[in-house]
Design a binder for these strands. Structure first.
Lengths: 196, 196
DNA sequence: TAAACGATAATGAACGTTCATTCATTTTAA
DNA sequence: TTAAAATGAATGAACGTTCATTATCGTTTA
């Protein structure tokens, strides 16, 4: 593994273990197994490092969440896969969501740049929703409004699980997932006969 | 206003304006209009201050979100009010949600204690959901699973708005809200005739 | 083949700054 | 007059960053 990646991984682990206040470049260097000065060969500053970390995490997240997406045959299969991927991912990486949010709120970071980056990473999912709208299978809402009430429920539910306020079994998970699927369906949709 | 509250309000404003890394006790003291030493009359340490800030914000949030709740006559009215309150609140305080998440992730904080505190603050809302379950008006799901797919959509949507990925008008807002309401309704529910 | 070389990578002590916290002193208010 | 509240300079620790030095390694030279 190249050293840059090694440092980024260490950075996330330090943030997860010690929090945002206790994070220091010296600590990061120790954890990454490099000298403090070495950090500055790969990153201009602490702030720059945080920005790079943000992109790194977002890209990795997108890859994990969309894993297997193109292999799914039907629209519903795709949805089920992504919903479950997101749920599993948030559960498996409980701190990551917060980390993303925090990194997203650091001053002097070009938010638009990050959003652009994220839209690129999640392109297949956005295309999926756009197609659902175009074919009138989904409600004729703005795309991210659809997302907010459907796939985002995987995040909301996972968060509640992490806080130990709910402990759903797989059957309950399927129920929530299907309910979130149904909510965005256009009631007047007539399938064309082609596999949806 | 008592000095303690004055300091907490200043603390949030410093966090919002300068971010988590630039936050310092000296800066807080200046913003609050007190001397640095005064902070330590009201809070044991920086960490303790952050914990208190967390509780302060959560309590205030609950009050705002539940404002007018008891004055609503029907179940749907209550839901609409809270959904809109949450949406408006997130839009009006875009940093606050992140702040809550970050404060929630500071090490050495008793998470269970915070959750307990929050459950107390949001008691009326939790009671509202529990009653919906008991009367079979809502689906027979675990309470926080219901929350994740219904009222949490107000948060999800507001977040998308903040990121400028969607710009809903009131009509669209109503649609989303009603969809999130419908999703948790028990299809076999028979109203008793009493006002719901 | 081995030695010499240059370029790139890595080091960690040192620097100036800023941090959270303390406490002797002063101000406030009853 | 007195106790409580507030002050802000002082403190030592920790911070991000720098840079002279050292190590590494592929290429060239003898």
């Amino acid at each position: 593994m190249d050293k840059r990646t090694q440092i980024l991984i260490a950075a996330e682990s330090v943030l997860a273990e010690r929090g945002f206040y206790a994070f220091s470049m010296q600590n990061l260097a120790d954890t990454a197994g490099v000298a403090a000065g070495t950090l500055y060969r790969y990153f201009d500053s602490k702030e720059a490092l945080m920005n790079e970390l943000q992109k790194f995490i977002r890209e990795q997240s997108a890859n994990i969440i969309l894993a297997g997406f193109n292999e799914c045959s039907t629209t519903k299969n795709k949805y089920d896969l992504v919903w479950q991927n997101i749920f599993d991912y948030v559960i498996a990486n409980p701190r990551r969501l917060t980390l993303i949010e925090v990194l997203h709120c650091i001053p002097n970071v070009d938010q638009a740049d990050i959003t652009l980056f994220e839209n690129e990473a999640f392109k297949p999912l956005i295309f999926f929703y756009q197609q659902g709208i175009n074919t009138k299978q989904f409600l004729n809402w703005q795309l991210f409004a659809l997302i907010a009430v459907s796939i985002d429920t995987a995040i909301s539910l996972a968060k509640q699980v992490i806080r130990e306020r709910v402990a759903p079994d797989q059957k309950q998970l399927d129920q929530v997932r299907d309910a979130s699927w149904n909510i965005i369906q256009n009631p007047h949709f007539k399938p064309t006969g082609i596999i949806q």
